[in-house]
Design a protein around this nucleic acid. Structure first.
Length: 239
DNA sequence: ACATTAAAGGGGT
DNA sequence: ACCCCTTTAATGT
């Protein structure tokens, strides 16, 4: 089994609450980052903690062949980076501005002072790390042994939890209300990179799922929609 | 890997 | 603002 598949995961980080953000923001320099900019990389090594204030950040690793493995997509309130031995993500991680972003940075002295002044925050950081561990284990379990279809179903489920929004197509509320729209711009390539598969396979599988009424899309570069109930049925059916 | 198609961008009117 | 053309990115096989 390809080792990189084990690294795929989603929703790694728990968000900070708005109150906690208020506590941190005053001491953290804020930067506007343009879409596509690399915010942090293994080379930087600049021991900083980053906090997403707006926009979306993509975390990824590079595999041997230089292929990108998307590890997570972060939004407002998510944190990433490392300071000294305090590491929120694994090492060798790249962070890219997926959209135009506003990012706050915290250095080690600031971070340590903050932890002393606000023990609740320190506790929350511990929770975040624990949650991450749990998520990693759960994702490993699902990505390690399942078929591509099963992994894709699971990924779609996680994505709809994280990015899903209620959605209605029109008059027929009873059936239409059941669709969830994923509020992220995800290409087949992206999905593949999150589940340790290849683009072609994802395309193929998505076409199947669309035929089964589990997913739908209006067109290229349009948001993907999933039908949670049918998704669950399909999931139950393939074990 | 190649072919197709849809969408974004740029220039001119 | 609108139309048309070029270019690029996404998808399909």
């Amino acid at each position: 089994m390809d080792k990189s598949k084990f690294l795929s995961r989603i929703d790694l980080f728990q968000k900070l609450s708005t109150e906690e953000l208020m506590q941190i923001e005053p001491i953290a320099p804020m930067n506007t980052i343009k879409k596509g900019t690399i915010i942090a990389s293994p080379q930087h090594g600049g021991k900083l903690l980053y906090l997403v204030k707006s926009g979306m950040v993509r975390l990824y690793k590079l595999s041997e062949g230089g292929k990108e493995l998307t590890v997570d997509l972060l939004r407002v309130g998510h944190i990433f980076g490392e300071i000294g031995s305090f590491t929120i993500s694994s090492e060798n991680m790249y962070a890219e501005a997926w959209e135009d972003c506003v990012i706050c940075t915290i250095n080690k002295p600031q971070f340590e002072q903050l932890m002393r002044e606000k023990p609740e925050l320190a506790l929350h950081f511990i929770e975040i790390i624990s949650t991450r561990l749990k998520e990693v284990e759960e994702m490993m379990e699902h990505m390690a042994y399942g078929s591509v279809r099963k992994r894709l179903l699971y990924l779609l489920h996680k994505l709809s939890e994280k990015f899903g929004s209620g959605f209605s197509m029109g008059e027929n509320e009873d059936t239409d209300r059941k669709w969830i729209e994923l509020e992220v711009k995800l290409t087949h390539q992206e999905l593949a990179s999150m589940m340790g598969s290849i683009r072609e396979t994802v395309t193929e599988q998505l076409t199947e799922l669309a035929a089964e009424g589990i997913v739908s899309k209006e067109g290229q570069r349009k948001p993907l929609r999933v039908h949670p109930e049918r998704l669950k049925m399909a999931w139950d059916a393939c074990r």
